[in-house]
């Protein structure tokens, strides 16, 4: 990567062109990416550190943080199990309809977040398919935590599978077959051969899955009902505070989410830099 592309000297008009192109790209990145990010922190601390801390310590903020963590803790592991199962079936066996299965796994990425929430309202809401039955049994899904988890699972479903499938395809199954022939049980093979081979790609997928799960807004907003302290995750708390003109409070919670984004980016870059070959082959745009 760091090897100079051209060893022959570059003529000066071309060097000017390079400098202009670099400057243009950097100005764009600064105006378009860095400034919004900086805005979040500047607005959060506009009135100083004390109001910032106060607005994060308010009970609604704390319950939103707890709910966001709860949703992620439930949604991410389920999508990890699904991702591993789907990748195993897709990359180790031949069966009819494999391409269709792959398209289905990618589907949630091309669905509007609002529609991702809407489908669960139509399934479990008062006028939905299972609405009357759930109501008569006193089970609440919509406007309650289960719907938040379901909508989040839907939106983040492809992340882990998408990282694992190309990698496991590229790795092939020789090592696993060898383990089996040498007498390893299915679990021994999985934990001693498969898992070590995919661990960094798995971590990469979990990282992206978690970032989206904690930050999801559209899908969650449709099924939440915005009940303060009960069904508002952090992004929803940001929205409610912002709409109530409570800007410092909104940006304070937003700054925590922005921090999560920055940590995610840092770990992601570190993984790509350190274990790029072992993550490898991940499809572009799979985020």
């Amino acid at each position: 990567m760091t090897v100079p592309l051209r060893s022959r000297p570059v003529a000066w008009p071309r060097r000017v062109l390079h400098a202009v192109l670099i400057a243009l790209a950097l100005v764009f990145l600064l105006l378009f990416l860095v400034m919004p990010l900086a805005t979040v922190f500047v607005e959060a601390f506009r009135q100083g550190v004390a109001p910032y801390l106060d607005s994060i310590r308010q009970p609604e903020a704390l319950s939103a943080i707890k709910l966001t963590l709860l949703v992620a803790v439930l949604a991410v592991p389920l999508n990890v199990l699904f991702g591993i199962a789907a990748a195993w079936a897709m990359t180790r066996f031949q069966f009819r309809g494999k391409a269709l299965l792959g398209a289905l796994i990618d589907l949630p990425f091309s669905v509007s977040p609002v529609v991702s929430g809407l489908v669960y309202v139509l399934l479990f809401g008062a006028q939905g398919w299972f609405g009357p039955w759930l109501d008569s049994h006193g089970i609440k899904i919509i406007f309650a935590v289960p719907a938040l988890v379901l909508a989040t699972i839907f939106v983040t479903l492809p992340f882990v599978a998408r990282e694992l499938i190309p990698l496991m395809q590229a790795q092939g199954s020789e090592e696993e077959e060898a383990a089996r022939v040498l007498g390893a049980s299915a679990w021994q093979m999985f934990f001693r051969v498969t898992l070590p081979n995919i661990r960094w790609a798995l971590l990469y997928g979990v990282l992206l899955c978690n970032a989206r799960a904690m930050g999801e807004f559209g899908a969650v907003s449709v099924v939440s009902g915005h009940i303060r302290g009960l069904t508002t995750t952090m992004p929803l708390e940001v929205e409610m505070r912002y709409n109530e003109y409570e800007y410092v409070g909104a940006f304070a919670v937003a700054s925590l989410l922005a921090l999560l984004a920055l940590v995610t980016l840092a770990v992601k870059s570190l993984l790509e830099w350190r274990y790029g070959d072992e993550i490898a082959a991940h499809a572009p745009g799979g985020h």
Binding site: L29, P36, E43, A211, G215, F217, L257, A261, T264, L265
Partner: peptide, 15 residues
């Protein structure tokens, strides 16, 4: 470059 992927949409929206 990946910031828009990682930054929650509501945060991007208000910023």
């Amino acid at each position: 470059v990946d910031l828009p992927f990682a930054l929650p949409t509501a945060v991007a929206g208000i910023a």
